[in-house]
Amino acid sequence: MTTQDPEAKAAFLQRVREAIGRTAPLEYVPDYPPLKSAAVRQEEKVRTIEARSLARRDRIVETYLENAARAGWRVHRVWSPEDAADAVGDIAQGIRAKTVARSAEDLFRAVDVDGALRRNRANPVVLAAGRSRSRADVRRLAFEADMGVTGVAYAIAETASCVITPRKGVARVTSLAPPVYAAIVRAEQVLETLDDYFALVRHQHQRSRTRSFNYANFISGPSRTGDIEQTLTIGVHGPGEVHLVLIS
């Protein structure tokens, strides 16, 4: 595997250093508060965010849904897991989906999406590699599916974003390759601002030094382009139709 040797790196960094006007590496960490804030302080910060999110939940969810509608999400607000499953079933029926790909997450124990899909004559496919399914299968099935369904790690009210953190059971392609996508969000997953989200990320990063923030995606609306005559066109490489099923 291609790697650069440490001496070449050191020489490069030395040139950078000299361009700044120094000859030796810094002997201290630069005075930059967002980097220096200790784990304890970050923990406090996260507690504050959690408390605020709880206290203001209704307002945060309202803002989230308003912004989502504005950003091109089709919003389905439901009050129970059963209704959430039905909402997904209705969406599938609305697009006459034959195959619907979903992730393998705990969420689907409570929200019986598979049952609802079957009732609407759609075939649910779980995109997770295992004994009977290879990684290549996962990819192929995602590209063949009419619709993808996943849960989210968080949602962000400020930007109408669903945060997806791919991991075992949650393939990247599920929310990406099918032309229609539905995200299932629980009200308590909605954060108020981008700042809240990155404070949480930093907290997790400080707690587990390795691979804490490996890959994440914000999905904040349908795939779009303006590249031809700057005319907005929906649905290029990602899903052109995005649904948000919010369970309060």
Binding site: V138, V170, V173, N217
Partner: peptide, 21 residues
């Protein structure tokens, strides 16, 4: 735009157990 449709945050290769990447 308030935000673009997608933001990707890539910090390394996929974890062994990941489905794809």
């Amino acid at each position: 735009q308030r935000i673009t449709s997608y933001n990707s945050f890539v910090s390394g290769p996929r974890a062994q157990s990941d489905e794809d990447g």
